[in-house]
Computed example of a mutant assay.
Amino acid sequence: MQQMLVPIRYAYTDITAITSHFRDKLGQGGYGSVYKGVLLPGDLHVAIKMLEGNSNCNGEDFISEVSTIGRIHHVNVVRLMGFCSEEMRRALVYEYMPGGSLDKYIFSSDKEKTFSWDKLNEIALGIARGIDYLHQGCEMQILHFDIKPHNILLDSNFVPKVADFGLAKLYPRGNSFVPLSALRGTIGYIAPEMISRSFGVISSKSDVYSFGMLLLEMAGGRRNANPNAANSSQSYYPSWVYDRLTEQQVGDISPVDDMHELEKKLCIVGLWCIQMKSHDRPTMSDVIEMLEGGVDGLQMPSRPFFCDEGHVHVDDSYHLSSELTAISEEEDELFCFVLLN
């Protein structure tokens, strides 16, 4: 029982044996490669992430933070089962998620891989509960900074689990200051304050922004940015869906009449989450309440992105660099730092 509650330390030779000499590669991420392995006895499948040698933290920090993260037990957070730390060789041993990552389902053209609106709402709630637990349910606040479909894994029953919450992201709860060295993220999901402090402090609200972008992609069944869209007004989904939800047409037919009630709810909650100023966004606890309730009680937020009265213009991607740079040129140094790192 004790072994199940804390991460087990493995030797590198154990890791090579568990992975059968790294035979079955599951994927490649920003921090290293992930391999499938089997723990004996019991034939328990695991996913082993081999961290790149240029990891920021030293051995002591690594083990200390692994110890903290290893005490996380939540149905919507992937469980850390073990680790390896031998000189520059570092590995994290996680429970294996047979359902794979969420992006394979929400961006799939295969109808067999699509979820019903009820299931999507259930998955969204699970993800929100997992993030909220990282923010408030642990001894130390854990900020993810890279919430995206690829980092949401599904078990055999399609229960979502937040994964890849990394290391060196532990902060005392209530501490609003996050050092610049902690910055990371993926273009398209990264909160504006991660690029320019003009938009607020970096905090748990930065994860809320990323979750909002994820929620909109779940609702739209597509990536938020599609520069190849036939209609330019639909190239940036958050802008398009905001207009659709707020348009008033003459007559009895509303532009949102054909939207499913749960689709509408996911979109409205997502639009609240991606407000540009961090203090205008809800907390993850608030998000859970909104997702648990009905759509009728939800008010539309303010327009949450930079644009004129028309639409956001996107070129080859939907990062906010041009808008952010134009609005706060004094932050050039910080902006360059984020782009280069």
Score class of each variant (00 low, 15 high):
I274G: 00
P172K: 09
M276C: 01
L154G: 01
E193C: 06
P192I: 07
Q28W: 08
M213S: 09
S328G: 05
S156N: 10
P282S: 09
G294I: 07
I195V: 15
G294P: 14
N76R: 12
G29M: 07
R173M: 08
I152T: 01
L245Y: 10
M50A: 08
I72F: 03
T68P: 00
L324E: 00
G30T: 11
E217R: 10
G297F: 07
L245I: 14
I123D: 03
V312M: 05
F211P: 08
T114K: 13
F211V: 06
L266M: 15
S64D: 14
T13Y: 01
K25Y: 01
P41W: 09
T68Y: 13
I202K: 05
F177M: 13
Y242I: 03
I123Y: 07
V295S: 15
L134G: 07
E333N: 14
P172C: 01
G30K: 12
S235K: 15
V159D: 02
M300N: 12
L143G: 03
P160L: 08
Q3T: 11
Q248K: 15
I187N: 01
S285W: 02
I69Y: 06
L340E: 15
V256E: 05
N58W: 10
W272E: 00
H319R: 07
G293E: 14
P304G: 00
S85T: 05
L339Y: 08
L183A: 09
V66M: 07
I63W: 02
G293K: 14
D207S: 11
M88R: 12
L143M: 11
D146T: 09
Y12G: 03
I190F: 00
I106P: 10
V6Q: 11
K264T: 13
Y171E: 03
E193Y: 02
E333G: 10
S203A: 08
S109E: 13
I268D: 00
Y31S: 12
L245E: 03
G200K: 06
V338M: 09
P301R: 02
L40I: 11
K277Y: 12
K148A: 05
E292T: 12
S176E: 14
N54T: 13
S181G: 10
V66F: 09
D286H: 13
T13E: 13
E193I: 06
D146E: 04
N226Y: 05
H319D: 14
M290R: 14
C138L: 03
D243I: 03
N231F: 13
G185D: 08
D14A: 06
Y237L: 15
C273F: 00
K169V: 08
Y94A: 04
T186Q: 06
S322F: 03
E331C: 12
E86T: 12
V159F: 05
E329W: 01
I202Q: 05
N341P: 04
P227Y: 12
E323N: 08
E122Y: 11
N175D: 15
S20D: 14
I48Y: 08
S206D: 01
L340V: 04
L143N: 03
M218I: 15
L39H: 10
L183P: 01
Q141E: 14
H144V: 02
L320N: 00
E112H: 11
V338W: 06
I15V: 15
D315F: 07
K148D: 02
Y318H: 15
E263N: 13
E292Y: 03
I202D: 00
